[in-house]
Design a protein around this nucleic acid. Sequence first.
DNA 1: CGAAGTGGAGAACGATCGTTCTCTCCCTGT
DNA 2: ACAGGGAGAGAACGATCGTTCTCCACTTCG
Lengths: 188, 188
Amino acid sequence: MDISEPRARIVETADELYNAKGIQAVGMDELRAAAGVSLKKLYGEFPSKSSIVMAVLERRHDSWTEGLDAAVRQAETPRARLLAIFDYLAGWFCQDSFRGCGFINSFAELGAISPDVADYARKHKESFQRYVGKLSEEAGAPPFLAPQLAILAEGAQTTAAIAGTPDAAGQARQAAEVLINAALRSEA
Amino acid sequence: MDISEPRARIVETADELYNAKGIQAVGMDELRAAAGVSLKKLYGEFPSKSSIVMAVLERRHDSWTEGLDAAVRQAETPRARLLAIFDYLAGWFCQDSFRGCGFINSFAELGAISPDVADYARKHKESFQRYVGKLSEEAGAPPFLAPQLAILAEGAQTTAAIAGTPDAAGQARQAAEVLINAALRSEA
DNA sequence: CGAAGTGGAGAACGATCGTTCTCTCCCTGT
DNA sequence: ACAGGGAGAGAACGATCGTTCTCCACTTCG
């Protein structure tokens, strides 16, 4: 992703603006000015605003997936890898730009009127659940653990966003430890 | 709340429309038509759209709080009262009109550009956390349990909304049982 | 019966949105 | 040096938004 390329710069700028102010609150002209391109170039790269929204969602999915996987890979045991999910959340919540999960937000804003956005949000969350499922399986946990941890992660995101504090990450992590211990014990 | 009163009918209609399509996607004229009222009466009852939004948030808070408390009161033991939260969620998720927590949605849509909406969403979530805290205390659980259960409830709401299935309620309930058991054991 | 006022229907207004068009400037090739 | 074309700036367009205004029908009271 070369930021000097107009297309990538547009998507990155749109991602930041949409995250900071909401998708519907950012007009094409504001995006044009922030990305430093002409309207003609904007509409040369993307046929419509909704196509930019979809490109932003793809970028968010890739960036989230890569960031999470990088954090998880640093942990050495299967159990630590499950908990690393919540350490990743903690780091994310502490960023000034954190304003909640972009997929939850875009689903809330556009899911009811844009099937594309709703589908992509659903796919993203399913992908996360599969990822947790894989980690959970590698830890030898029964299949009910993964949805529980995924729900914890979702709840931590919305709680941290609305409360404006990163506390929920640590609380979710502690809950995850309890759930993991119980699941592994039930398996043994 | 007398539905024959125009003011109450406006707020109820706005609640339904905003829930179904998002706040920004519903114009004043659509609301006027759905509520069966004239534009003059609409602006006689409310000075602006944002005041209607705040009235809808208050209505949602009251209705959520009352519904939850009614479900909780039916349970007889402190432990069952904590779990009743998730039974209430299950019933909610199964409604056709369920499209996620209205406060999470309105925060995602308007929180960044409307401090009033953001504040109200925060207050609502704080109120829920205090409520869980009170139930948790009555069950004799240590103070760390309440935030964990609140996070589970939040995560169940967003998961059920995006996935479009009510499964998350049962999964969160099972997780809650584990967390409650562990918390009560640690207290003993 | 007539005048005054209330309320509904919907036109109108200004702002803003997404999108397209126009105009101009500058770079390039010969 | 000059013709041609691509790109940038931003005006323009149609739609829609929140909000206000106009007009008319109907009621009500002297």
